[in-house]
């Protein structure tokens, strides 16, 4: 298992290199560069703009810029400088990482806690009223994109006279030390993004769990378990659910890239301090190293997620073994 993991990790390196070249090429395909905005600003002369461009290394050919960035990453874990934020990329990301992980993690947790039981329930009561309502709500969840969900939730809260929308903390708590009221205030703000981001995931997970459950219920071992007179509860939880949940565990790994990509739109609408919107602003502002690092991060998370999903599957399902 360890050698398998190591081999997979080593195999990722060339892919990651190719991806970084592609990302940089895509970013560089945008005409112009970061310093062009200074040319429209009357306070900057052309000479100043040129000086800044030289200072940032943007006068070099693209291949040299890429080489320097890559060398910085490999030699000293330096992901370049964010022109737009005027700080090293790593420090910007580090600052936002906490909130990002909190929001995505919480969303993931909540959507699993809701979706898996719903999936099991709908599989067992296929034609019941509750299951039909749940299935229909699943369709509804799939049909509301996250930005629309955010807008609707904010409109709802505002029309009910609430004010806890946008941002992640009320202004009086931003610099305050952690306390119960502060945590309550945080939760008061967090439920909107959690629902908005999680809606689609819940619907998808629920359908997967239901399908997987229905698959298992037709298996011989479930019939055998019933035939030998095991109590219903035991058949359901030990024989059916235990097996139906295996494919779901491997799905958990695949949700790793959602850490960044899942929060982009909702964070822009709701003004949340996560990494997602940073990708959007850096692309629009030609903040090339920031954009490159974030694109790389999302790709690496996806690759790691795939690996994690394979490993989790092997761990949870004794029939799957990699050698």
């Amino acid at each position: 298992m360890l050698t398998y993991t190591l081999r997979r990790l080593l195999g990722m390196i060339p892919t990651i290199l190719i991806i970084s070249v592609v990302c940089f090429a895509v970013i560089k395909l945008q005409p112009g560069n970061f310093t062009d905005q200074y040319l429209e600003d009357p306070r900057f002369t052309r000479e100043t703009a040129d000086a800044i461009r030289r200072q940032l290394g943007l006068d070099q050919p693209a291949i040299v810029q890429y080489g320097r960035w890559l060398w910085g990453v490999v030699s000293r874990f330096d992901f370049g400088y964010s022109f737009f934020q005027n700080r090293p990329v790593t420090s910007v990301i580090g600052e936002l990482l906490g909130w990002t992980v909190l929001i995505s993690g919480l969303t993931l947790l909540v959507s699993w806690l809701v979706a898996v039981p719903l999936g099991i329930y709908t599989a067992f009561n296929r034609n019941g009223l509750g299951a039909q309502i749940a299935n229909f709500l699943g369709y509804v969840g799939l049909a509301i994109p996250d930005f629309l969900a955010s807008l609707l939730l904010v409109a709802l809260v505002l029309s009910l006279g609430g004010t806890n929308v946008g941002g992640i903390l009320s202004s009086q708590y931003i610099d305050a030390p952690w306390s119960w009221p502060k945590i309550l205030d945080l939760l008061n703000h967090l439920w909107i993004p959690v629902i908005a981001i999680g809606l689609e995931g819940v619907a998808g997970l629920m359908r997967q769990m239901r399908a997987s459950m229905l698959d298992v219920l037709t298996q011989d071992y479930v019939r055998t378990a019933k035939a030998k007179g095991l109590p219903q509860q035991k058949v359901i939880w030990r024989h059916a659910v235990r097996n139906a949940i295996n494919p779901m565990i491997s799905l958990a790994g695949l949700s790793l890239p959602a850490l960044i990509s899942g929060t982009i739109v909702a964070s822009i609408v709701l003004n949340l301090p996560t990494i997602g919107p940073m990708l959007y602003t850096s692309l629009l502002n030609k903040d090339q190293y920031m954009a490159l690092t974030l694109l790389m991060m999302s790709a690496v998370l996806l690759l790691l997620g795939n690996l994690l999903s394979d490993l989790l599957l092997a761990w949870s399902d004794p029939r799957v073994r990699y050698s």
Partner: peptide, 8 residues
């Protein structure tokens, strides 16, 4: 396929 959909 190595990119999540929205970023790319």
């Amino acid at each position: 396929l190595s990119f999540p959909r929205l970023p790319i």
